[in-house]
């Protein structure tokens, strides 16, 4: 549940979601659920030459199971907060 709670904090920020099929979509994180399904708004495809048809879908639902990476905005990463959260998670609390 750590990632779910963490991603919820990032709602409204710009993220890049990289899928397991190599498609990378950048957009504003609209919402995330417990399965890490991700909804993006104002999306654009990072590699537009390779995926021209994805050029400009406005909103997009991405199945959590097909996500490989989520690239976070550096200013959205609170290292201290993550340290605490991971320690708590490791303790099973």
């Amino acid at each position: 549940m750590l990632f779910f709670s963490y991603f919820k904090e990032l709602v409204g920020r710009e993220v890049t979601v990289e899928l397991k099929n190599d498609l990378a979509i950048r957009g504003t994180l609209h919402s995330v659920d417990q399965y890490l399904n991700i909804k993006l708004e104002n999306t654009r495809v990072v590699d537009q030459d390779k995926y021209p048809h994805m050029l400009s879908v406005r909103n997009c639902f991405i199945r959590g199971s097909v996500v490989r990476y989520v690239q976070l905005p550096p200013e959205g990463v609170d290292v201290e907060l993550l340290h605490d959260a991971t320690r708590r998670e490791a303790r099973g609390g």
Binding site: T43, H53, M54, S56, V57, R58, N59, C60, R63
Partner: peptide
């Protein structure tokens, strides 16, 4: 279904 989106462009 890996993803779905509204395409208007």
């Amino acid at each position: 279904l890996s993803l779905h989106a509204v395409s208007r462009d």
